Amino acid sequence: MATNRSRRLRKKLCVDEFQELGFELTFSYKEGLDLEAISEFFERFIAEAIENNDLGFIGAADYGFVCLGKRGSVSAEQRAQVEAWLQKGHAELAGSTVSPLLDVWYPENPVNA
């Protein structure tokens, strides 16, 4: 595809100045934890860390992708808030990882400055 694109096309393709950012999450739970405890933790996570920051989560209880709840990009501050919430010492979690900000539509592309 040509790199000399119109503004309208760049917006439609979510590239260049219209790039949208998000981040990946992985969770590992303590061994022997029952499904109900995992479900309760995950519901708390969605309500407190995701919805309270106007974010959206796509995935499951062990892996997912966080993006903005509307069109646009996740800010570094929003990412840091989710990461801080996960590090508060939840009894259910054995660990979690939060990726750096990534291009939502084209994860292989670098993030624009």
Rank of each mutant, 00 (worst) to 15 (best):
S99Y: 00
E36F: 14
I50F: 07
E17R: 15
V82Y: 05
D16K: 10
F45L: 10
E31K: 10
F18V: 01
N53S: 11
E83R: 12
R10L: 07
P107N: 07
D16W: 09
L68G: 03
Y106V: 08
A2D: 11
G72Y: 03
K30F: 06
N112K: 13
G32D: 12
F45R: 06
C14R: 15
G56E: 02
W85G: 00
S28E: 09
V82I: 04
G95S: 14
S75V: 05
C67M: 09
Y29M: 15
L25N: 01
Q87F: 07
F27S: 02
A49E: 02
E92N: 01
D34Y: 14
W105F: 10
G64A: 07
S99I: 02
R5W: 07
L33N: 10
E77M: 03
L35S: 14
L35G: 08
D54C: 13
S75D: 11
S73Y: 09
F41K: 13
Q78T: 09
A94I: 08
E48G: 01
K30G: 11
D34E: 04
E43W: 03
F57E: 05
K88H: 02
E20Y: 06
E83W: 10
A37S: 12
W105R: 13
G69K: 05
E24H: 12
A84R: 14
P100N: 11
G56K: 08
K70V: 08
H90V: 04
F65D: 03
Q87P: 00
S73N: 08
P107R: 04
S96N: 14
E77P: 02
E43I: 05
S99H: 00
M1A: 04
Y29A: 13
E48T: 02
D103Y: 05
R71Y: 09
C14G: 01
D54N: 13
Q81V: 06
M1S: 11
R8A: 12
A76Q: 15
K11D: 14
I38V: 14
V104G: 00
Y29T: 15
D62S: 10
D16F: 14
L33E: 03
I58T: 06
A49N: 10
R5I: 10
S39D: 14
V74C: 05
R44L: 04
G69I: 00
L9D: 12
R79T: 01
L102E: 06
L33W: 11
L21R: 08
H90M: 06
D54A: 13
G22R: 01
A113W: 12
A47D: 09
F27H: 11
N53M: 04
G95H: 10
G56Y: 03
Q81E: 12
L101A: 10
R44K: 11
D62W: 10
H90C: 13
A113M: 09
V98N: 04
L35N: 11
H90R: 08
F42P: 02
